[in-house]
Design a binder for these strands. Structure first.
Lengths: 133, 133
DNA sequence: CTTGACCTTCCAGTTACTGGAGGCTTTATC
DNA sequence: GATAAAGCCTCCAGTAACTGGAAGGTCAAG
């Protein structure tokens, strides 16, 4: 399989696949013409990477997950730990965004949004922030 | 005021303030010794930037907001539009993260997380993704 | 034999900073 | 007055994860 084939099958752009090779996530062989030659193992790894990335794991997470994926004797607890840490990061990010949303929608609602210059949004932004830590 | 003063008053690191000057968000004068000399106007702008960034506006958003902030004759509708677009981005991001959280916590719950190698998380990650678009 | 689709490498740019080196200036202390 | 610490300066490089583009080799079809 050439890079275009695995790109369409994994859903990853060819550029990204080359990048993943650059940073050592995959190691496809080469044909005599210099083209990358992917086997089904590499395709599986790419699929794995696409799915992990779509769930928000960082590349370094993916590297760790991939080595666990390939280690037939790993403990599922190792995987679960990584996943739980990531879940916690996601939850924190959601909370942060929700707080932003509440604050900003409060401001938007106060703004009449017509052609007058008076604007509570800008007025508020000029104030020092009170972090609701 | 030197950079350290406005840094502590605005909450922005001095490094970040220099960076904001580099990209043209602020234009502090200079003392004869080469030190940046901030007046209260610049401090207000930095405060404005700190608050806008903490609400997740991009630097380019901030640039636009800042020019509206400085334009005494702008229409509040212009500001409201920017803010509403940003609210929509936040809402989309929240939805995306929630979807990740649901999927991943489903996987984590299925994983027994002990020292056996069998792991539903890795099994799933190896599957082609079904995008619930 | 040429056209067009693929493939290759390499370089640069993106976002919003952050760290560090090397070197002035100012302030405090002895 | 000497010195040391703190604060300021500029410039360079690195971060995360790609993405775009240039310049050029290869392959299949007509």
């Amino acid at each position: 399989m050439n890079i275009g084939d695995v790109a369409s099958q994994s859903g990853l752009p060819a550029k990204t696949i080359r990048y993943y090779e650059d940073i050592g996530l995959i190691r496809p062989k080469r044909d005599s013409n210099g083209y990358r030659a992917f086997d089904t193992t590499e395709l599986h790894k790419l699929t794995f990477l696409a799915r992990s990335r779509s769930l928000g794991f960082t590349i370094e997470d993916c590297r760790a997950l991939l080595s666990l994926y390939e280690d037939r004797r790993r403990a599922s607890a190792d995987v679960k730990l990584l996943a739980e840490e990531h879940l916690a990061r996601i939850a924190r990010k959601i909370a942060e965004l929700k707080a932003m949303h509440v604050t900003l929608s409060g401001l938007v609602n106060k703004c009449h949004g017509d052609d007058r210059p008076d604007c509570p949004i800008l007025d508020d932004l000029g104030q020092l922030e009170e972090m609701p830590s």
